[in-house]
């Protein structure tokens, strides 16, 4: 298996190295179980041409069979053309159902009212437009929406709430980005996709790492010590992390906590939903 040098380097941090066969087995079982026991056979997934959605689609195709997976390609007119061709490569490789839906008309119609809207606002709107299309297909194709957010972006809040963060079932939300690369490589996601610079593709030439201001390899290492091991700031500094980097990352995790929770509800009764009315999601399954 050929692994590009930069990705090999990214996978070198041993505490986040995974056994792909073990992780694959757990995730395939997860998809089969959590989809089928609530009465579904199919999933629908937004394919961006990036590594996260390519990996999630690969897992779903293996778990449920390619004919039970539909990939939606939802480009905007300013999206990098390579995103679509990469997503199409994944569709061909997996043999899954797919549909191409250009979201430009509905986005442009809306922003005709707000011509001065900045990039981030437009990007969020696009993410939510794609979400509504996925959930429409969830109804129309009797399929659950498969999530594609990884643990790194969930922790950093690097996603749009009720946009790309919305899903029914997420198989990769407990894998850091560098682990997504490892698993994708092992499962045969096209090397060009694993290798390319991660991007939300909100505008031409955008990359996650430039926008975030640090590399996934660095931040995953920090998040490992901060989240998994619960190191103190002093311990993180002793581990070699610069204080400004620690502060920026901790700030992102703290300030995006609201995105990882249901809306806060004003408490009045003795059994408030999700506070003291607590039932498992898989209730009765």
């Amino acid at each position: 298996m050929s692994v590009p040098a930069n990705r090999t380097e990214r996978a070198e941090f041993l505490p986040l190295a995974i056994n792909p066969a073990l992780v694959e087995r757990i995730l395939l079982g997860f998809i089969q179980d959590e989809v089928r026991k609530v009465g579904f056979q199919r999933v629908v997934i937004g394919l961006s041409g990036g590594v996260d959605s390519s990996l999630a689609a690969t897992l779903a195709a293996r778990a449920l069979g390619p004919s039970n997976v539909k990939g939606l390609l939802m480009p905007y007119r300013l999206s990098d053309p390579r995103s679509q061709s990469d997503a199409e490569a994944v569709v061909r490789q997996l043999g899954i159902e797919h549909e191409l839906i250009d979201i430009s008309p509905q986005i442009d119609a809306y922003f005709a009212r707000y011509p001065d809207a900045e990039q981030a606002r437009r990007g969020n709107k696009m993410a939510r437009e794609r979400m509504t299309i996925l959930y429409d297909h969830s109804w129309g194709w009797q399929a659950l929406v498969l999530g594609t957010s990884n643990k790194t972006e969930l922790l950093l809040g690097y996603g749009t709430i009720y946009g790309d963060m919305a899903s029914a079932v997420n198989p990769i939300g407990d894998l850091y980005k560098t682990q997504v690369w490892q698993l994708s490589d092992a499962l045969g996601v096209p090397t060009a996709i694993v290798q390319k610079a991660p991007s939300a593709d909100l505008w031409a030439g955008q990359t996650d790492e430039v926008e975030l201001g640090f590399q996934y390899r660095e931040v995953d290492r920090l998040l490992y010590y901060l989240i998994e091991r619960r190191y103190s700031i002093a311990e993180l500094e002793r581990e070699g992390f610069a204080r400004p980097f620690i502060d920026v990352v901790m700030g992102k995790v703290r300030d995006s906590q609201y995105k990882r929770r249901l809306p806060v509800i004003a408490k009045l009764s003795s059994r408030t939903i999700d506070r003291d009315f607590r039932y498992p999601r898989d209730w009765g399954h």
Partner: peptide, 11 residues
Amino acid sequence: PGRGVSTDERL
């Protein structure tokens, strides 16, 4: 419940 994935073959 299983947790703790590493390079090992088992959890």
